[in-house]
Amino acid sequence: MSSDTEVVSLRNEIASLHKDCRDLVQFIVNARSEISQIKPTDLKKDKLPRAGKELDAIVQATELATNSIMEATERIMEAKVTEPDVVNDACMEIFEACSFQDITGQRISKVVSTLEYIEDHLDKLSSAWGHEENAEGAPTPEPEGETALLNGPALAGEGVDQDYVDSMFDEAPAEEASSDDKKKEKKAEKSASEDLPSGESINQDDIDALFN
């Protein structure tokens, strides 16, 4: 191979390498832009903790409901009835079904752990890319219209209770409401606007086989 050919070949290789480097830089720029769109601080400070609270609220609500069902069932079992066997069998089935609360509680706890893991790693990702606490990209647009009103059930301490709703209908028209009422309404509106964003398992028969 002549030296001219070698030079041309070398130039081509350098040009190719140069293009690869530019592509790589562009890829990193794009990746950085995409990561900034994730808004890790927003997720970490607002959406993930909110999701965790919602799940905790589910556990509490199912526990309360389950206890109410069981209390009612216990009263039925204690009562004098004409067909005690039928009632007892039905009550046993209710108790068995109530164990869903324990299972769902455990499953939700696992989801909460996953959320905490994601939160932790988003924090690390955010730090690695040099994001500062308040240096977010474009702010998340506030929901408008009916979307702003559709946020599902409020958590404990948020929103208003039925007594307050009743009082809003019992008292003066809305435009004459006291400033205290207006504050409560604003609090309710604010809460309503918060966006929500080793081995194989085996069945009881398999386990029985291990003990037989």
């Binding site: 046993m92 108790f95 068995e96 164990s99 869903f100 324990d102 299972i103 455990q106 080793s198 081995g199 194989e200 398992s201 085996i202 069945n203 009881q204 398999d206 386990i207 291990l210 003990f211």
Partner: peptide, 26 residues
């Protein structure tokens, strides 16, 4: 609710007399 084979084997080795997987019935 721990229903993996490893759990049952470990419990049995530790001396459990029987093992019931949740949810269970009467």
């Amino acid at each position: 609710a721990e229903s993996k084979t490893d759990n049952v084997i470990a419990a049995k080795k530790a001396g459990v007399n029987n093992y019931i997987v949740k949810p269970f019935n009467a």
